[in-house]
Design a protein around this nucleic acid. Sequence first.
DNA 1: AAAAAAT
Length: 461
Amino acid sequence: MPFADLGLSDELLRAVAEAGYSEPTPIQAAAIPPVLMMRDIIGIAQTGTGKTASFVLPMIDILAHGRTRARMPRSLILEPTRELAAQVAENFEKYGRQHKLSMALLIGGVSMGDQVKALEKGVDVLIATPGRLMDLFGRGNVLLTGCSMLVIDEADRMLDMGFIPDIEEICSKLPKQRQTLLFSATMPPPIKKLADKFLDNPKQIEVARPASTNTNITQWLVPVKASAVDKRERLRQLLAQPEVSSAVIFCNRKTTVRELNKSLKRHGFRSGEIHGDMEQPQRLAELDLFRRGEVNILVASDVAARGLDIKGVSHVFNFDAPWHPDDYVHRIGRTGRAGATGTAYTFVAPDDAENVDNIEKLTGQKIARLEAPAPTAVPAAADGEESGRPRRARRDRRPVEERAPRARREERAAPRRETPRAEYREPRRDDVRRDEAEPADAGGWNGPVPDFLNVGIAARP
DNA sequence: AAAAAAT
């Protein structure tokens, strides 16, 4: 079905075409017509399915038709994180350019002055995180009585973050006569309850089973020792693969994010970082550097796990296995977006076995293990920690068939250490070499783990 | 256990 059949205005269709899209994604095709008919919607969709456009486009259409004087905001979009809110605002600008609609981005971490000014001038659309919106509301800077359209995006994340009471309070300040759209990747009972309470006869749209992972993402488990030195070494090896054009590396702790980014930079990688302890302008700046390809590696906490849409992320690394299996699905969803292929490596230290079990249970699939590289792939241990330790015999017992990444690593190991920068100098966002980069047995389950996980357990602090 | 979000 082409975009033209969804009932959007000609101006919007032009904007969509200019943005380079010709066919709607499944969620867009399913959601846009009923939204235009003013129905309430529950959208169950993973990120990366084109969800944002599925509400931004019809919202612009509705606002453009029912245009009154923009004294009071007429619609409100709630997002769990500041970056997501900013991203939706960008979408709104991209598609709404011809429509002279005004919007205000109400997020924390930046000065209130500009936001208040925009509100005083009058805007059509509010895009907000709950905290700042409540703050502005409490100060009397924003009136919600004209908001006849509400979008609650990433509802399950809002739940995780404890935003549900805020959402309820905000809902109570909106007019009862309104259209409400709720999007969520999963439907836990509290979200179902929220929907029952605030939505009217919603049409439920589901485009991907919750907790299902994208099939165009090749997933690997990478057994590692618990030591940070070991993990960083292994990470550098994997990053050196030529097909790694752009990568997001997730860590469980903000301190790990900082340390890892420092270490990567020391080793000549072009990396940046993002986590919740950074000042907001810096967070957005780092994200922007990554988007533009000025850095091709972004080390991140879970602030970046959900929803962030960055083109051409070829690889996701879980430097730490995530504690919650849901987060795994979201993290690896930063790659393989919009039909592209991607690769996700998850480091598994001995203590992570249970978390990995939970991930495999949730996704319903076993993830193949990428065995340790051959000794030749690890040129004389420069980092010290490993030197002098005898090579373990298990390395020789590996299956005979070669995996593509390892073969390349062997070829490139020596030059890489001399000129690590050379491989990371140019932004290669648009490289389309991933097809040839697929490991031969990608996706296959390698059989039972040969006790690998129990070898070399480091002492825990 | 961590991270996120208003200051």
